[in-house]
């Protein structure tokens, strides 16, 4: 299956529940207050949040006035343009090897699964990949990573349950250097972002990476569950405070969730949206592209 068909197939349900509702309001009637109210309902129901929703609606009001658009049917492309403009700010550049990707996020967003899929993807591209099992907190987390590592045929550096995660990262970097590897993926413990000492642990890992591998491109990528609501913004803000995030990826968009918070994040944070997860298999983790993404949901 090609890239676009995968994205469209994966987000079919999203498009169905979001796009269908929109189609129903872009009917060709005159633009009036009811139209904007309906649009507000649809955007908020899709987790855009009150602030981003107001921003989008204000933009739409202004531009319809300026471009003298009278019919709702002509609004659809305008809405697409507005969304693409915001999301394009967050389009990522290609990864440059050697590089380190530290993967962060609260419990259960799919960090380990995402790393497993990435390992498979990079290994298929003939890159030398090392995994660091720095989640030494959750029961059986490193087992889960090892299963993925075996599937992708890459090396995983682990240690016992409860060991200092920074030590695991240090070991994995030594292995990275010895093997002259291309990409190091660091799995960290899922943690609720308001726990100060756990955040300190992440900073420590970061210090180890920067000291031991200063020449590598260093990505600090937060993973957000596509079913999350406005809490996504506070997750990103707090992880950003802790380690100065560079990237974000979103998982589980193959349900009926719309991931509307992504637009707010692109607007308010200086982050690259790196990957979009739309299914269970490794091929379902797609590189983000603003226009395709908007086309897939709208």
């Amino acid at each position: 299956m090609g890239f676009f068909s995968r994205l469209f197939e994966g987000m079919k349900k999203t498009k169905k529940s979001f796009g269908e509702k929109l189609k129903y309001i872009f009917t060709g009637n005159e633009i009036d207050e009811d139209f904007f109210e309906e649009l507000e309902y649809i955007l908020i129901s899709s987790d855009f949040g009150v602030e981003t929703t107001s921003y989008i609606i204000d933009e739409l009001r202004e531009r319809t006035k300026k471009e003298k658009i009278k019919k709702t049917a002509d609004c659809q492309n305008l809405l697409k343009t507005i969304l693409v403009e915001i999301l394009e700010e967050a389009a990522p550049e290609k990864l440059k090897c050697p590089c380190v990707i530290m993967v962060l996020g609260v419990n259960g967003v799919g960090k380990t699964t995402t790393i497993g899929k990435l390992a498979k993807k990079f290994s298929d591209e003939n890159k030398k990949v090392i995994l660091a099992a720095a989640d030494t907190f959750r029961a059986a987390a490193s087992d889960q990573l090892e299963v993925w590592a075996n599937r992708a045929k890459v090396k995983v550096v682990t240690n016992e349950h409860g060991v200092d995660p920074a030590a695991v990262v240090y070991d994995s970097i030594q292995s990275f250097k010895a093997k002259n590897a291309d990409i190091l993926l660091i799995d960290t413990a899922g943690r609720l972002h308001n726990k100060a000492n756990l955040m300190e642990e992440l900073r420590k890992i970061s210090r180890v990476v920067q000291k031991e591998l200063p020449e590598a491109e260093y990505h600090k990528m937060v993973i957000v569950d596509g079913t999350t609501g406005q809490n996504a913004l506070s997750q990103v803000e707090l992880f950003n405070e802790a380690v100065d995030l560079t990237d974000i990826s979103i998982t589980k968009l193959d349900g009926t969730s719309k991931g509307g918070f992504l637009v707010g994040l692109a607007k308010d944070f200086d982050l690259d949206i790196r990957y979009v997860g739309v299914g269970e298999s490794a091929e379902d983790l797609l590189e983000f592209n603003a226009k395709d993404f908007v086309d897939a949901i709208l």
Binding site: G108, D225, G229, N231
Partner: peptide
């Protein structure tokens, strides 16, 4: 998950 968005009810 208490952090689920509008999707929780669906």
């Amino acid at each position: 998950d208490a952090m689920t968005g509008q999707e929780a009810v669906n």
